Amino acid sequence: KMTIRVKGKELARRIAKEMKDRNLKVEIHEHGDEVILEIE
């Protein structure tokens, strides 16, 4: 399990899509400006 902190929703969406393309499970937690992606 891996956690990534990202500034900006646009970048977070791009990373999430990339991870889904690799068949990984992604959970997205938004905290205002910061987005936390949990990847399994």
Rank of each mutant, 00 (worst) to 15 (best):
E10V: 06
T3L: 11
L24T: 03
A12C: 08
V6Q: 01
L37R: 01
I28V: 10
E38I: 15
I15S: 01
E10H: 08
K17T: 07
T3E: 05
K1F: 09
L24D: 00
A16Y: 12
R5M: 09
E18H: 13
I39H: 01
H29T: 13
I4T: 01
R22V: 03
K25F: 07
E30Y: 15
I28E: 03
I39A: 03
R14N: 05
D33R: 04
A12H: 01
I28M: 12
R22H: 08
E27S: 13
K17R: 10
I39P: 01
I39Q: 01
I28K: 02
H31L: 14
K9D: 04
R5G: 03
R13W: 13
G8C: 15
D33P: 04
V35D: 02
R5N: 04
I28R: 03
V26D: 00
K20R: 15
R22E: 03
R13E: 14
N23P: 00
K9Q: 10
I36E: 04
I28S: 04
G8P: 07
K1P: 08
K9S: 08
D21R: 14
I15P: 01
H31Q: 12
G32W: 06
K17L: 08
I36Y: 11
K9I: 15
E27P: 01
R5W: 09
L24M: 12
R13Q: 14
K1A: 08
E40W: 15
V26A: 02
R14Q: 12
H31I: 14
R22L: 10
K7P: 04
E40K: 09
L37F: 06
A16P: 00
I4Y: 05
K25H: 12
L37N: 00
G8A: 05
L37D: 01
E10P: 03
R5A: 05
L11N: 08
G32L: 07
K17P: 00
E30V: 12
E34W: 15
E18C: 13
E30L: 12
L37Q: 01
V35A: 04
M2K: 08
E34K: 04
V26F: 07
K9C: 13
H29F: 14
L37K: 00
R14Y: 05
M2G: 04
E34R: 05
I39G: 00
V26E: 00
I15L: 11
E27G: 05
E30H: 11
I39V: 11
L11S: 04
I28T: 04
K25W: 10
T3F: 14
A12Q: 00
M2P: 02
G32Q: 06
V26K: 01
K9L: 15
K9A: 10
A16Q: 04
E34P: 02
M2V: 14
V6L: 08
M2C: 15
H29E: 05
E40Q: 13
M2W: 15
M2I: 14
L37T: 00
L24N: 03
R14G: 04
E27A: 13
D21T: 08
I36Q: 03
R5P: 03
G8H: 09
N23D: 08
L11Q: 07
V35C: 07
I15K: 02
N23A: 06
R14V: 09
R13T: 11
R13C: 14
L11I: 10
D33A: 05
E27Y: 14
K1G: 09
I28F: 08
G32M: 05
I4K: 02
V35Q: 04
K9R: 13
D21P: 02
L37G: 00
K7T: 10
I36T: 08
K20L: 14
E40N: 10
M19T: 01
K1N: 06
K1V: 08
A12P: 00
K20N: 10
R14C: 15
I28Q: 04
E18S: 12
T3K: 08
A12G: 09
V6Y: 03
V35W: 15
H29I: 14
E30T: 09
I15D: 00
A12L: 03
R13S: 12
K17E: 11
E18R: 13
G8D: 15
T3R: 09
I39L: 04
N23H: 11
E27I: 15
D21H: 09
K20Y: 09
K25L: 09
V35L: 11
E27V: 15
L24A: 04
I28D: 00
R22N: 07
M19D: 00
M2H: 11
L24C: 12
I4Q: 02
E18A: 15
K17N: 09
E30N: 06
E30Q: 10
K20H: 09
K20C: 14
I39E: 01
E40L: 12
I15V: 06
L11D: 06
V35R: 02
I36S: 03
D33K: 05
E30S: 07
E38H: 12
L11T: 08
E18V: 13
D33M: 05
V26T: 03
L24P: 00
E34S: 09
A16F: 09
K1T: 08
K9V: 13
I15H: 01
K17W: 05
R14F: 06
M2F: 13
E27T: 15
E10F: 05
E38G: 03
E18K: 12
H29Y: 14
E38D: 06
H29C: 11
K25Q: 10
K1I: 11
R22T: 03
D33N: 08
E27D: 09
E30K: 05
H29N: 04
G32F: 07
E10M: 06
V35T: 09
E34M: 14
R13D: 13
E10T: 07
K9Y: 11
K7A: 07
R5E: 03
L37W: 01
A16G: 03
E40S: 15
M2A: 07
L11M: 07
E38T: 14
